[in-house]
Design a binder for these strands. Structure first.
Length: 829
RNA sequence: GGGUGGUUAGCUCAGUUGGUAGAGCGUCUCGCUUACAUCGAGAAUGUCGGGGGUUCGAGUCCCUCACCACCCACCA
């Protein structure tokens, strides 16, 4: 078969790809020399949210070059492929798809049915991704394809790998070691997805905002002399005021103010520190009074120097509130609307006044108080802001408003304004596990390239914050913790002589905020184990044998549904509290049915109900275990032993914190080893002008379209050329076209050889013994080239390797060697 | 407010121990010569952001200024 003048990528790629697959050329250890050193790369698992873009292509090509380079030289090579379940992103995609297809919404569908839909989506999307990776020529060991949710309950056939088990195992271990904790903290709340997110998932963007200045009247009509001085000590203001002036960019949060703070050194306010002032909003007869306190936080030079403290909706304020024992009143619901639940405003405000006056209130009670006046209840936060401003202005207590650019937090996926929200969440206590991760890079156990990446890594880890890992989503690894209500032995007995149990927990057993005592949390890999833990715990509380305790895990979502749909409610509507349950079977039946109350004694046995935390883990918690999870840990698989720690991680610098740093911490915490020896960070692929590619700009280069037009090699070579260490890859179609031409050039050199019968005879392996000077010369040149390419790749300078090959093929082989060879081939040899 | 990187030919960018600048694309001229017009032959274009310093010698090291980009950050 003689060769065409131009290379036909489509035909060749399909043929070669099939041959590779048939030969098992990419299997772990393929082409390894006996006793060879291992070389392993874990693919950064693409999300199962859709098609691959050119950024993936870039990432894949670099890995493929490293992998093939090692495999070719006889290393025992594994390139581990797989996909990430990508909690929020995938849930979003599937919800959108369901909506487009006119299906029931997730909430109507129920968790189980929805998850089945997600798995269907995953099967489709995962398959697409694998096929696209294959089109890019990725030489992964496809038989080992992994998925971060494989093996999870509800996973369909074909998802039997055990990644889920590894994730759960790590959670349980870390919990038991005290590396994971749960608590009520101010977290970044996404009102669109109605879940907490981590700090990293928040994008701070400057937007046009306003700063309003309001007057908080002093309580009881009190007045004071307000004196302001300029830099030289000259008095510029000296007047009698009956208010304190504060500034805010978020007037709607005033409703939850717990204090006004000034700096302790601020002489202007010294006369009124300790006094009360009034929040100038809401029905006049029930306005709340809050104290004027001192704290280091306010900057006397900024604004009026006085700051309103809203502990439940601002991170700074929260810290101030904590330090000073100021209550944190939550104003919003999960959708970011002002709360409509709880007691009427008048009663809530009355209680808040008592608290302000010194009444003791627990965290749960404070959280349950809804201090939103009826007029604002249920309003969206932005609408509430408008109303609050209008109302204060109408009352004449607004002293000004200025336009001001402000930094506002947005959800990276939802693009809605993030709300600091006081909620119960799970956290990794990163401070405890960060040390080894820092140390490993400092010592060089892991090297990050380019070097600037190490600086960024250090900077972030040295200032690490706790990592919020719980998400109020359905698609993900469900947190392996079961809760029961706190129960104590009251010592009381019924007439028949059996003990009465007392639940010491106040509030609603179905309330997520009500799982306060960790002694009654049961963290275990399976519900069976959780039941056993609970059984032993309850038995020990009452001093009985575990054999006499029955533990019932129940589904809290079902319980909530039962409650919603039942018009009767045996809980005290005021407090939501159930105090004690005796062994009265009728009472038990009623209570259990309506509230899923947690314990009773029945037929001489203790019965105790537990329910699993409905939340799931942050996607990055599971992908943080990618290196060990894909290799079969916790089992000591041969692959784990051979390929871990892995050799190189090739990934985008944008996920240095999200993923790389966390993998370092997690692997070191779990198996005490670094996950990889070298991290190669690359930039985001941009268009030829250096702008981010986006659908709206229309400058997206679709790798599949490029492949269709120019062939995979043209794309791959272009991407390799762009891989400058620390550089910003800018891709243009022109470049790809140029490299398609390069491919043609190479093709034609081969065609020339073929036309001259070079391939007709089998010359065997190894370096041919050349006699002609030209041939000896070119063999030497090839050797030089190889050294050059090896050196470049060894230093992760893909662009230099590409450049060397380009210059050699075009400038040496084609320009000179082919020409020199012509007389040789046409001559009488 | 911190941090990181960048500023080299018209464009996009390389330039790893300091030794008077390179590639691709584009431009201009010529050429369909038996591997290749997705090609060949030839040509033009740079005070390497400004300033200062170290050195025999600096795009390459140091200082400083300007501008750009990105990341991180709680100023109400």
């Amino acid at each position: 078969m003689s060769m065409e003048k131009t290379f036909d990528p489509a035909a060749a790629e399909a043929r070669i790809s099939a041959a590779w697959e048939k030969a098992g050329a990419f299997r772990a250890g393929a082409h390894a020399k006996p006793g060879a050193e291992a070389f392993c790369i874990m693919i950064p698992p693409p999300n199962v949210t859709g098609a691959l873009h050119v950024g993936h292509a870039f990432n894949i090509v670099l890995q493929d070059i490293l992998v093939r380079w090692h495999r070719m030289r006889g290393f025992d090579t594994l390139w581990q492929p797989g996909q990430d379940h990508a909690g929020i992103a995938t849930q979003l995609v599937v919800e959108r798809k369901l909506a487009e297809e006119g299906n029931a919404r997730r909430q109507e569908m129920g968790r189980e049915a929805f998850l089945r839909k997600v798995w269907e989506w995953k099967a489709e999307s995962g398959g697409t991704i694998v096929n696209q990776l294959k089109r890019l020529g990725a030489s992964c060991d496809w038989e080992r394809n992994a998925f971060t949710m494989s093996g999870a309950p509800g996973a369909p056939a074909g998802e039997a790998r055990k990644f889920h088990a590894a994730v759960i195992r790590v959670f349980v271990d870390m919990y038991r070691k005290g590396l994971i904790y749960r608590g009520k903290r101010l977290v970044n709340w996404d009102p669109h997805f109605e879940t907490a997110i981590s700090d990293l998932e928040v994008e701070n963007i400057e937007v046009a905002g306003h700063m309003w200045h309001f007057r908080y009247p002093l309580a009881g009509g009190a007045t004071y002399r307000h004196v302001e001085k300029d830099g030289e000590g000259r008095v510029v203001v000296d007047e009698v005021r009956d208010y304190i002036s504060i500034a805010t960019t978020r007037p709607e949060t005033m409703l939850g103010d717990g204090a006004v703070a000034v700096h302790p050194s601020d002489a202007r306010y010294a006369p009124i520190v300790g006094m009360l002032c009034e929040i100038p909003v809401g029905p006049k007869e029930h306005r709340r009074l809050i104290p004027i306190i001192t704290d280091e936080y306010p900057d006397p030079a900024f604004g009026s120097g006085a700051v309103k403290i809203t502990g439940a909706h601002d991170f700074n304020d929260h810290a101030v509130a904590r330090r000073n024992g100021i209550p944190c009143y939550r104003l919003m619901d999960t959708k970011g609307a002002l709360r409509a639940d709880g007691l009427p405003y008048a009663e809530a405000a009355a209680r808040a006044r008592e608290i302000a006056a010194g009444a003791v209130a627990g965290e749960a009670e404070v959280d349950a108080l809804n201090l939103v006046p009826e007029a604002y209840r249920g309003l969206d936060r932005f609408e509430a802001r408008r109303r609050v401003v209008a109302d204060i202005e109408a009352e004449g207590l607004m002293s000004g408003v200025e336009a001001k650019p402000i930094m506002q937090p947005f959800g990276d996926r939802s693009k809605v304004v993030i709300e600091p929200m006081l909620t119960d969440q799970w956290f990794v206590d990163t401070a405890q596990i960060v040390g080894p991760a820092l140390e490993a890079v400092r010592k060089g156990d892991t090297v990050i390239l380019p070097e600037s990446g190490e600086k960024t890594y250090f900077h972030w880890l040295e200032n690490i914050e706790p990592w919020c890992i719980s998400r109020q989503l359905w698609w993900g690894h469900q947190i392996p913790v079961w809760y029961g209500l706190e129960i104590t032995d009251s010592g009381l007995q019924t007439k028949s002589g059996e003990k009465v149990f007392v639940s010491t927990v106040t509030g609603d057993p179905l309330d997520r905020g009500n799982r306060t005592n960790p002694d009654f949390w049961f963290c275990a890999a399976t519900d069976g184990e959780a039941v056993n833990l609970a059984r032993e715990k309850i038995a020990s509380v009452f001093g009985v044998s575990p054999n006499t305790v029955d533990v019932f895990p129940f589904d809290i979502a079902a319980a909530e549904r039962v409650r919603r749909e039942d018009s009767r409610n045996c809980l005290d509507p005021r407090t939501g509290q159930v105090v004690s349950i005796t062994d009265d079977p009728e009472l038990f039946k009623e209570a259990f049915r309506l509230t899923f109350m947690t314990a009773c004694r029945k037929n001489g046995r203790i019965q105790y109900a537990i329910h699993r935390d409905p939340d799931v883990l942050d996607t990055w918690f599971s992908s943080g275990l990618w290196p060990i999870g894909t290799l079969g840990w916790p089992e000591k698989t041969p692959e784990f032993q051979k390929y871990f720690p892995t050799s190189v991680l090739v990934t985008g610098q944008d996920i240095l914190f999200f993923w790389v740093a966390r993998m370092m911490m997690m692997q070191l915490a779990v198996v005490g080893e670094v996950p990889f020896r070298t991290v190669y960070l690359h930039g985001l692929v941009r268009d030829e002008k250096g702008e981010k590619m986006s659908k709206t700009k229309g400058n997206v280069i679709d790798p599949l379209e490029v492949i269709a037009e120019f062939g995979t090699d043209a794309l791959r070579f272009s991407l390799a050329q762009l891989a400058v260490l620390g550089g910003m890859p800018k891709l243009s179609t022109e470049r790809i076209r140029g490299n398609r031409n390069f491919g043609t050039k190479l093709w034609n050199a081969c065609r020339f050889a073929e036309m001259n019968g070079v391939f007709a005879e089998d010359r065997g392996d190894g370096v041919p013994g050349a006699r002609a000077t030209v041939n000896r010369w070119i063999i030497g040149e090839v050797g030089r080239l190889r050294e050059e390419v090896d050196a470049a790749l060894g230093a992760f300078r893909f662009n230099e390797a590409a450049q060397a090959l380009y210059a050699f093929v075009w400038g040496v082989v084609c320009d000179w060697y082919v020409e020199f060879a012509k007389p040789l081939l046409t001559g009488a040899d």
